[in-house]
Design a protein around this nucleic acid. Sequence first.
DNA 1: ATCAGTGCAAAGGATTTGCATTACA
DNA 2: TGTAATGCAAATCCTTTGCACTGAT
Lengths: 141, 141
Amino acid sequence: MTGIERFRLFLKEKGLKFTPERRKIVEEIISFHDHFDVETLYHRLKRKVSLATIYRTLPLLRESGLIREVLRCQGRAVFESVWGHPHHDHLICIVCGKVIEFEDERIEKLQEEVCRKFGFQPVEHRLGIKGYCKECQRKIK
Amino acid sequence: MTGIERFRLFLKEKGLKFTPERRKIVEEIISFHDHFDVETLYHRLKRKVSLATIYRTLPLLRESGLIREVLRCQGRAVFESVWGHPHHDHLICIVCGKVIEFEDERIEKLQEEVCRKFGFQPVEHRLGIKGYCKECQRKIK
DNA sequence: ATCAGTGCAAAGGATTTGCATTACA
DNA sequence: TGTAATGCAAATCCTTTGCACTGAT
């Protein structure tokens, strides 16, 4: 199943409509795997879809498991496409803003274990470690 | 060393001043270990310290390691006092908003391992798992 | 034919900032 | 004394919303 099909199905199940605007948004999101904020997405869509519609569509994309919010950068929410990409977490440099992605299956497993322990059904999770990247540590010293 | 002393020292090292307002804020934060947002803190301080000053002081408290931002709730940043409290992470129910705290030493250790691997010097980290709590799972079914 | 979705512009709400004044160090 | 901090109010900036119109199912 493609991401677009997935979204279409999700909308159908909820009795919502698959509009041209929503199609453009999903297509754009799936074609890139970088981090993006709303403004960036808006420009990538060449302003063919209004900001209001983007803001109204993002929650649906989250619910359907196509994107997730990874972090906040100066008040702005930053998302990433999740479809077809292995889950990973982030190291965020508080000096230069660089983001390093990493995967650790063991951490994932332990999280699942914790959820079971509390009878909690996880939907989305986010692990962000803020600190100084290698380069910025040097600069400071 | 108490939290207040720690903050005082931090300010001194940075050439900043320890004012009555900052003292009130630290005292208040240390006396509670719950989660709090800016508005709540403002009211706890009985409005003796202005919102502007609170907003200007919070980053300093973060840098000095006394508090950390744990999550965002409808746009509002939520913090918690970290001083003298073991690190923990959160399960956040997306239906009722309940927050369950948990500690897992093994996850912490793995995070340190990841940081070493990337030569990254961690300052603060945050693991939040969103999903359905036990009660809300029942309600939905 | 309906009911949800869209764009626009206005509203909202948290956070930041300019400025004159105050007060630590 | 000199520099940073405070409070106030205005300004920002991201995000949400009301409304009249459009369009997917």
